[in-house]
């Protein structure tokens, strides 16, 4: 792997992370926020793969697999929560979930 492609991939992974983060911050719909979270998690995944490739280390792939598992678990929990939340609150507006404050 060349140094240029490494840099490009790292930048891409950082961009993925930032885009995901921005999605969570900018969108109010719970579903979209969960989706954005997945995008954000894709950033470090790509970075680990890239770094693993660069150092010829299988640890990167291992981390990637674990992040996948985490992402799946998180989505599962998130969707369950989403279904629950829809009964009591407006699922399209996460900002309405603000009874716990101050």
């Amino acid at each position: 792997m060349t140094e240029d492609s490494f840099t490009a991939l790292m930048l891409l992974s950082t961009a993925l992370f930032v885009v995901g983060l921005f999605g969570v911050l900018a969108r109010r719909s719970i579903l979209i926020q969960l989706l954005s979270l997945e995008v954000a998690l894709a950033g470090p995944s790509l970075a680990f793969i890239t770094a693993g490739a660069r150092h010829a280390d299988a640890g990167g792939q291992a981390m990637f697999v674990m992040i996948l598992i985490l992402a799946a678990a998180e989505v599962a929990l998130g969707l369950a929560l989403y279904l629950r939340l829809r009964r009591t609150a407006d699922g399209t507006d996460s900002d309405s979930l603000s009874s716990l404050r101050h």
Partner: peptide, 13 residues
Amino acid sequence: AATLLMGLAFAFA
């Protein structure tokens, strides 16, 4: 978690 992972990935990289 994403932030933490990003940091770990940077160090690994």
